[in-house]
Design a protein around this nucleic acid. Structure first.
Lengths: 170, 170
DNA sequence: CCTAGATCGTAAGTATACTGTCAATCAATA
DNA sequence: TATTGATTGACAGTATACTTACGATCTAGG
């Protein structure tokens, strides 16, 4: 079998490349999120962090990064900003002086309740151009692919591992 | 019809959200790209910029940003880095003193030829966990979605508009 | 009990992504 | 032609994403 000919160096090859499409789609998703949620002064990352803290009060930053698959270093500044906005509270853990436990404040819980409908609108808008059946198909394939590629990312999702020690589910 | 009940605030809802999946997939894609291309000291963005300059020698930064749908402000520093590595050349346009025209240098053209196989491996790896038919389906849906959502992004792709004045095709 | 290795938070450094703003320049028009 | 308006590239500021490193702390082994 003859070796495959070298791919031509064209922009169209870039446009059709998975990596390019994922990047583009992410840009679009963030843009739509920010548009729908501009009244709330919360970024997608900050939103996910709030959700996770809401679901797991008293989680620490390292475990939080595993639960939402965010880079640990980045998360430090995300937490700082959420704290500056008074949406979360950071308390030292009595049994481990290294750890700081994260909790939603009352305003944090409130903004979360308020922003949810806007986030839902944003999520819907991202897929809106597709036919309903195609939306389902795309999401199904993406869930599969992200899961199967989990270990390939620098910050794999480790929800279960991270939560083992918290002694609570989902 | 009763109004839809408020969505529960759970992490699983985040995991299934399009925005989260797009973000995750992008992280994975960049990670795989960097791994396959680590010998070349080129990021995905820098690679795309080189390809575009290769395809359109003498393009300026603003048009380049439209051709690859990158933010123009960001592109400034990308260009600086490519220039620092001696992969591109920036020359003032004689007929317009505001514009600086971009060209690949000889080393830039060389690295481009060399990196292409690694990039192809990276692109293939991103989809590898899926069955071939599913890869096709996913790419087809993504191409559609990115195209239909083009205007939703802050930096829409404007390949044709941008190239009109260059007097050459893609 | 005390050291070796792991873990937690933090910080510095690089790269992308976007928001503004600004001066220089060009183009179109009054 | 002289002013207006648009465009180009540059810069400042914020936010994410990742790397490496480092001190403080905890835990396990000897």
């Amino acid at each position: 079998m003859p070796s495959k000919p070298a791919a031509p160096i064209t922009i169209d090859a870039v446009y059709a490349a998975p990596g390019y499409l994922f990047r583009r789609m992410q840009q679009i998703a963030v843009s739509i999120f920010m548009e729908e949620c501009k009244a709330f002064d919360l970024t997608p990352v900050q939103y996910a962090a709030l959700i996770a803290i809401h679901a797991h009060p008293g989680i620490d930053a390292t475990r939080l990064s595993a639960v939402i698959a965010f880079d640990r270093s980045t998360l430090g500044s995300v937490i700082e900003r959420l704290q500056a906005k008074d949406y979360i509270d950071r308390r030292p853990a009595p049994e481990d002086k290294r750890i700081k436990l994260l909790y939603l404040t009352r305003p944090g819980a409130a903004i979360l309740r308020e922003i949810v409908p806007a986030v839902e609108r944003a999520q819907a808008r991202m897929l809106e151009p597709l036919k309903p059946a195609d939306r389902k198909a795309l999401m199904g394939l993406l869930v599969q692919l992200v899961d199967l590629n989990n270990e390939a990312s620098r910050v794999p999702l480790r929800a279960e591992d991270a939560l083992e020690h918290l002694g609570k589910a989902g």
